[in-house]
Design a protein around this nucleic acid. Structure first.
Length: 233
DNA sequence: GCGACAG
DNA sequence: ATCTTGTCGC
């Protein structure tokens, strides 16, 4: 996909929220909820951190079986939109696309630190990105944006996240000491596969390795930038 | 009208 | 997300 087309999908530019909502609807039409991958050999994690008016998007690619890091990438951008619930795809989109395209080899599936189809109009960052880029994605968040579910209390316990009688994701107790995490398909990943992939990536922490490591990396880059800002040499 | 609301 | 100290529990 060329650069101009990508901007149309991810750059909020000077468009109104109404226009942005329309664009989300266009992307949602492209979402596929069946598995669109074969054997998973690599899985990536994507997360962002912020510093003043800049956003740091970090991506980590891991070997699916061993969960060993293969590649770490990041990009720093000026944020183009304030945080507005349900419009996160336009706030973090451009940076995420840049980081994603920096990978030397595209991952078989990517886990985002955000919502998937568990969004008011099914346009969570993971679902939106996956639909536009036509790649498999899963969303893993820490808070419920929409939907309701019984809360799991025992590690491994999980329940369906429901909205209007439809399942839009899962709520999973990933760790004894942590609050449950919310999992949802993004694109080209079924409801069951989304849960299975995330469970496979859990290694004793609240978050699955891909997302946990991406979060750490984004934080490290942030600290570096902070030093430069305070100590310009 | 009121409350909820990913990062 | 970010700002921040101590504190409870394993």
């Amino acid at each position: 996909m060329n650069k101009d087309r990508l901007r149309e999908w991810f750059d909020p530019q000077k468009r109104s929220l109404k226009e942005l909502r329309e664009i989300q609807h266009e992307a949602v039409k492209k979402i596929k909820l069946e598995d669109g991958f074969d054997k998973i050999e690599t899985v990536a994690g994507m997360d962002c951190s912020y510093l003043d008016n800049r956003i740091i998007c970090a991506m980590i690619v891991l070997d699916y079986e061993s969960m060993e890091v293969i590649e770490k990438r990041h990009v720093v951008r000026e944020v183009g939109l304030p945080y507005i619930p349900t419009y996160l795809n336009f706030r973090e989109g451009c940076g995420i696309v840049s980081a994603f395209l920096k990978a030397s080899r595209l991952p078989d599936i990517t886990i985002f630190d955000s919502c998937g189809i568990n969004h008011p109009i099914r346009a969570g960052m993971a679902a939106y990105f996956g639909a536009v880029m036509d790649v498999p994605t899963i969303g893993v968040s820490k808070k419920i944006l929409c939907g309701h579910a019984e809360m799991p209390t025992v590690p491994g316990e999980h329940h369906k996240l429901m909205e209007d009688g439809e399942q839009i994701g899962w709520v999973l107790k990933s760790n004894k000491r942590s609050n449950p995490i919310i999992i949802a398909p993004g694109n080209k990943a079924s409801m069951d596969s989304s849960l299975e992939v995330v469970q496979h990536c859990l290694k004793g922490y609240k978050l699955p390795e891909p997302t946990r490591l991406a979060h750490n990396h984004a934080g490290e880059i942030r600290e570096e930038l902070k030093r430069k800002t305070e100590n310009p040499e």
